[in-house]
Write a protein that binds this DNA or RNA. Structure first.
Length: 521
RNA sequence: GCCAGUAUAGCUCAGCGGUAGAGUAGGGGACUCAUAAGCCCUUGGUCGCAGGUUCGAAUCCUGCUACUGGCACCA
């Protein structure tokens, strides 16, 4: 089976990460870890977009080379991914020589096959902002405002990609491949919008205006502009065009199973430019990747923006509440594709009720009773009907979990885990081991109940593993059993001979509200 | 302007033609293995508004309102 290939958007190294960056990487990480749990080989690619005008300008302001500036910001991302446990297999930094050569080779190839041409654009140009202005920048009076400074009419040569040549192909591709974008409503949105995107795509900037980019191989006066540089990371870092082993690896990996992206870069970048670029490069329709589009996080109903200062710092949250609580909350509270509202109250609520009171307490009480009544080692006895029915229900839950996770419905997958935990906690109370322990005639029943609870707790920890790997592994360590296997028909299993459980220790200590330093709204 | 979507209990959401649901928060109870956790019971909604179709509508249709997103426009 081909490896599961998943990517995230690469983040722009002009400013440090915010909660949205963290959400997207955690989302991709959970899906990657889930696939590994299923026994599938995974190639998880994430990274940073280091080129561009803003990086160049920010570096100039500080009087340092752009690479140094980009590397410093990249470091804040790398450090956050480490804290959050993002298990990527490859790191795409767009200033890497490998990527540069890949972009240049693709440009040369496209030019040779007449997909690129040079043309002159004339328009209004702001000298202060160093950019062409469109009608969007005109004020209500039809004039360009004072924020643009001196505006002149300017002619400029640039390289263009024949996007218009793809419009018919794209329309029919979208029509015949409704699975290209999920959730479905985003695909509809793209299909409706794609027909309105006309004209060719300008893919260069003259070096006189922008030097911080990848130079054109056949025209050294120009560098590659944004999307033609950034989008190619998805294949360049996966081995595309390589003559070494990586080239073979690419042919196994491609097409990408999930480009995880935010709703802001679906149209036109990933929904129009990217498939058209791949089409031009010669990829067949069956070799097109799939897009998974997530929503945004708001804060108290307000759009998160630097100008209003309501930025949530994921590094601070991870520091205060820990990566487990943060990962769990972000995955639990956001419905795939929908926007969600961030609140620390809900973060604490989800952690303390579902993880602490639910799963954590189940593990704690189960191990505690096993040690108290059986010195950690229940006798292996056949399970009576009610208890085998309980484990059978767990197996059904696991199947439901698999269905939800395969559909990238992480919030729903987590919910099935919670249901399993609730059922186990109810069993503790109905079976009342503390009563069984007082009655020697109920010794077998007590053994069977403890074994059932241990197996249920182990299954719950397994289902939690993609979302909260550290916590799940700690639970499994305390239980003293490995995760169940999700690769074939689910087996809930039995206790192995000689089984002894470990010592319980709260895995999800109750969290209290802390001062995060975030501005009050 | 065009195209989508959302509006259901204080909060987060499910239901999508057949007597309003879950979790959480609030109230009560029995228990004691456990992270003052867990279990059982329970309060709480004229399902955005107005019409229509139907024996019957959160559920289908039309209009309206509010909010969200995309595209186009912004002369």
């Amino acid at each position: 089976m081909k490896p599961f290939f998943i990517t995230t958007a690469i983040d722009y190294t002009n400013a440090p990460p915010h909660i949205g960056h963290a959400y997207e990487k955690i989302l991709a990480d959970v899906l990657a870890r889930y696939q590994r749990l299923r026994g599938r080989e995974v190639f998880f690619l994430t990274g940073v977009d280091q080129h561009g005008q803003k990086v160049q300008q920010s570096a100039e302001r500080e009087g340092i080379p752009p690479q140094e500036f980009a590397d410093r910001i990249s470091g804040t991302f790398l450090s956050l991914w480490k804290t959050l446990g993002i298990s990527y297999d490859a790191w795409a930094a767009t200033t890497a020589p490998l990527h540069r050569e890949s972009v240049r080779a693709i440009l040369s190839d496209l030019k040779e096959r007449d997909w690129l041409y040079k043309a002159t654009y004339s328009g209004h140009y702001s000298i202060r902002q160093e950019q062409f202005l469109t009608d969007k920048e005109r004020g209500p009076d039809g004039e360009f405002g004072p924020e643009w400074g001196e505006v002149v009419l300017l002619d400029e040569e640039n390289w263009y990609f024949r996007l218009s040549k793809c419009s018919e192909w794209l329309a029919s591709f979208l029509e015949s491949h409704p699975e290209f974008v999920s959730p479905g409503f985003r695909h509809t949105e793209l299909s409706n919008a794609a027909t309105k995107i006309t004209g060719d795509l300008c893919i260069s900037r003259p070096k006189s205006r922008l030097s911080w980019g990848i130079e054109f191989p056949f025209d050294s006066n120009f560098v590659t502009y944004v999307w033609f540089d950034a989008l190619i990371n998805y294949i360049s870092f996966a081995g595309y065009g390589s003559r070494s082993e990586e080239g073979a690896a690419f042919r196994r990996r491609w097409p990408c199973d999930q480009h995880v992206i935010g709703k802001d870069i679906l149209i036109p970048a990933h929904g129009v430019y990217w498939p058209c670029m791949l089409h031009a490069m010669g990829f067949a329709d069956e070799e097109m990747p799939k897009l998974l589009v997530h929503g945004f996080w708001s804060l108290k109903g307000e759009k998160v923006s630097k100008s209003t200062g309501n930025v949530v710092d994921p590094a601070a949250l991870a520091e205060i509440y820990g990566p487990t609580a943060l990962r769990y909350y972000l995955m639990r509270d956001a419905v795939m594709g929908q926007d969600a509202d961030f609140s620390e109250e809900r973060l604490l609520l989800r952690h303390n009720t579902e993880l602490g009171n639910g799963l954590g307490n189940l593990v704690n009480r189960t191990l505690s009773m096993t040690r108290r009544y059986r010195e950690g080692s229940p006798n292996l006895v056949p399970l009576p009907a009610d208890l085998s029915a309980h484990l059978e229900a767990d197996a059904v839950t696991v199947k439901a979990f698999i269905a939800e996770m395969d559909a990238a419905q992480i919030h729903a997958g987590i919910e099935t885990m919670v249901e399993l935990v609730n059922r186990a906690n109810a069993l503790v109370d109905s079976a009342a081991p503390w009563k069984l322990a007082k009655d020697p005639e109920q010794a077998d029943r007590l053994d069977a109940v403890l074994a059932t609870l241990i197996l249920s707790a182990r299954t719950a920890a397994t289902l939690l593993q993609p979302v909260a790997p550290d916590a799940a592994n700690e639970i499994l360590r305390q239980i003293g059993l490995p995760a169940i296997s999700l690769d074939e028909e689910t087996a809930i299993g039995t206790l192995p001979p000689g089984y002894v459980c470990g010592e319980p220790k709260p895995v999800f200590p109750r969290l209290e509200m802390q001062e995060t330093g975030a501005p009050a709204a």
